[in-house]
């Protein structure tokens, strides 16, 4: 457990040994099963992985919005380093006063599908003002002003008109902008964007990513960007975490990970994406992500791994080991270390 006294440098959020499991009639889904990362102010951390790998549940755990029951954070710590003190979020109950003062104010969340976070029966203005009034001591009139400003910041034309409109009157790209405006309206320290552009066309994606970049530059907020798109990670992230079956498989500086991926899963992901900048043939990863209910031992990727060798037959899960300074991988190719308690 991290002691909250380590308010070293610029750290904004530190997650250690996070485990979030879902207890269902059909069995236990270990959606997040040992995730560690750290993010500094102004930094962009990319979390990449395929569907069902646990990247969204990781982010939901930080926000304490994991549907519960059946989900529960069963282990690990999430420490948020606010403006003057460090708080251990993982100790707060989801609906506690402390958590509500952090959620939406200090840490904001953008969902993939904008309609998840927008109400069809309230005007855009009312929805934005609600969050502003909740977190800042302003009048309704002032809140309206802040809402209009927030819309202008995400480059929505004619924000004074848009505040009086309803969601169905807006296009998909505009809706996602409104969601971002809402998330940014209270000037959060940390923004978690969960596949913010996956449902959008590339042209709209570029506008949204650029808007997020600009705002980050001017406000210095931290950004956790969750995506399956290596292109988006390559353009946006400072650091990358690659997740597979609830565990971090590789973690490092974006240049290091893209130049020299250590884990066979990361390499395989790169080899399986068609891209505009090269003409090499694709090498698909064999098989597919296993059934989440399936209980496995040993390395979670070994059944699909092209580099599997004798050591991988071990029932112990390989540990996430630092292979080079600041660049670690969970793979027996690089380290024989195993994770405690999995033998």
């Amino acid at each position: 457990m991290t002691s909250a006294s380590q308010t070293s440098d610029n750290t904004l959020l530190e997650v250690q040994g996070l485990k979030t499991h879902f207890f269902l009639d059909m069995g236990i889904v270990r959606a997040v099963d040992g995730v560690d990362f750290r993010i500094s102010r102004g930094q962009t951390l990319g979390i990449v992985g395929e569907s069902g790998c646990g990247k969204s549940v990781t982010a939901q755990s930080v926000m304490q919005i994991v549907p519960s029951p059946p989900g529960r954070i069963i282990d690990g710590s999430i420490v948020y380093f606010g403006s003057n003190s460090a708080v251990e979020i993982s100790r707060f109950r989801a609906n506690s006063r402390e958590m509500r003062s952090i959620r939406g104010k200090e840490i904001s969340y953008i969902f993939q599908e904008p309609m998840t976070s927008l109400s069809p029966v309230h005007t855009i203005g009312n929805q934005l003002e609600e969050a502003i009034l909740l977190h800042t001591p302003v009048t309704r009139g002032e809140a309206r002003g802040i809402a209009v400003e927030a819309l202008a910041r995400v480059r929505i034309g004619e924000p004074e008109r848009i505040v009086n409109e309803y969601v169905h009157q807006l296009s998909g790209g505009m809706r996602q902008r409104v969601v971002i405006a809402q998330a940014l309206s209270c000037n959060p320290q940390l923004l978690i964007a969960d596949e913010p552009t996956t449902a959008l066309d590339v042209t709209m994606q570029a506008q949204i990513l650029r808007t997020i970049q600009d705002i980050q530059q001017e406000s210095g907020m931290g950004l956790i960007l969750i995506t399956h798109d290596m292109g988006v990670i390559g353009q946006m992230a400072d650091e990358v975490v690659v997740i597979y079956r609830g565990r971090v498989m590789e973690h490092g500086d974006v240049i290091a990970v893209f130049d020299e991926p250590l884990h066979p899963y990361t390499k395989a992901l790169f080899d399986s994406i068609p891209r505009l900048d090269t003409d090499r043939p694709l090498r698909p990863i064999s098989g597919s992500v296993p059934d989440p209910f399936l209980e496995t031992t040993g390395c979670p990727f070994r059944d699909r791994c092209p580099s599997r060798f004798d050591a991988c037959d071990s029932d112990a899960v390989p540990a996430l080991a630092e292979v080079r300074p600041g660049h670690s991988a969970r793979c027996y190719l690089h380290s024989g270390a195993t994770e405690e308690g999995t033998e």
Partner: peptide
């Protein structure tokens, strides 16, 4: 506007 998976070739997204 297609993001290139290469952090060494970063471009400010050209906007449409």
């Amino acid at each position: 506007v297609v993001p290139i998976p290469n952090p060494r070739q970063r471009t400010r997204f050209r906007l449409l």
